[in-house]
Design a protein around this nucleic acid. Sequence first.
DNA 1: AGGCTATTTATACACTTGCACAATAAGGCC
DNA 2: GGCCTTATTGTGCAAGTGTATAAATAGCCT
Lengths: 222, 222
Amino acid sequence: MPDAAHPAPMNERRKFRREGEERRRQDLIDATLDSVAEHGLEGASLRAIALRAGVTAGLIRHYFPGKEELLQEAYAALMGRMTEQAKAALLMENSSPRQRLAAFVTANLNAPIIDARVFSLWATFIGRAGADPSLARAHREGYLGFRNEVEAVVAEVLGAEQRRPDANELRRHAIAINAIIDGLWVEGCLAAEMFSPGELAAIGVKAIEAELGLAPERGKDK
Amino acid sequence: MPDAAHPAPMNERRKFRREGEERRRQDLIDATLDSVAEHGLEGASLRAIALRAGVTAGLIRHYFPGKEELLQEAYAALMGRMTEQAKAALLMENSSPRQRLAAFVTANLNAPIIDARVFSLWATFIGRAGADPSLARAHREGYLGFRNEVEAVVAEVLGAEQRRPDANELRRHAIAINAIIDGLWVEGCLAAEMFSPGELAAIGVKAIEAELGLAPERGKDK
DNA sequence: AGGCTATTTATACACTTGCACAATAAGGCC
DNA sequence: GGCCTTATTGTGCAAGTGTATAAATAGCCT
């Protein structure tokens, strides 16, 4: 029974603050990624997402035409962050091509790219690539961009060693190196505790140098 | 309006046949995998699964305590088939260790293991490994078993070359080789049309031989 | 200060979901 | 052939889904 001493507190409408549009969209996208990472696509209901973002479900429709579009934007945001971080390691100036390649590999095989949450998101979304052509295309573009970066560095590395690989050889090297990075990334994300810190990166660098036929770096092995 | 000339055909109960228990369970598991592969976990409702299996939804509860258990059994079945096929290639007798390793890699990088549907299923389930510890454990066991197989063949291959690697070196080789296979598998499943038939296997074999420091096979290159 | 507008809440709706359970008939057994 | 078990169907239900839309209020503008 309501206490008449209190000024009729029932049916009170929830207080709220107006945030900027860009901020709200970002919060909603982040909340979406968090929901998907934690409970999968099935658990990512609009109400759950809204709750996590600190708003009510209805608001989502004010910023996104529907759930589909929200998920697409979330996936795009995820891919954007991943490739952005991955490529950043290639921008080092004043270093030999070989050092830059090693730095690239090392960056891709440590936190924050080796991360269970990111992997979970990647797997969840990519699992739908078979059914959703737009997802498949988004992936292929990201993959090709990534592989082209790799191919460019490989060409520089080999060039510095006075070697002139033809296009086909370059392509094969890029595919193999990509596979090494991807494979170690998967293993690291799924069972990080099975590897000591830096171990995956060390294995990756060694494997890639073997693939390229580079002589082991002097003075670094124990 | 029902036509009275026909002998009251309304309210007719659906005809059915009793199948053996094992058969029905398999059908339901297969229907589950098909549903997940096509529409993801979200689209795999009991009714959709039952429809695909040619039964009604209620029957599922007669064979499985709930949806959760059905999904778990489906995942276990998927993993079982994958590793079974993968290991089969290692059983060749009368061949050199190096040939067996190459056969193993080749088998893993062609159909039916390179397959968009299988990959989609793997990704969908593994995406939940972060949230579901039982899934994570199932994966790690499968992964370790796989890696141990690899390690054993690697030891044989190197032994045949009169090399005696220590345990640590062996472990690193196995991790790297596993990564190469996994990475190429992912790339092949996601964009099969980007690679000519046998190309991935060729790249994989070459990369692995480079990793192990094996001399290129005579008489096979171009 | 007071009004305007767009952001936000709240409610309604049709539909689906997993699960429970009663009704039914298929097919082996005597 | 008739009976009995149980595999299978069909229906019902409460909870949750995405979407639509009306009602309210926060905060900028003058």
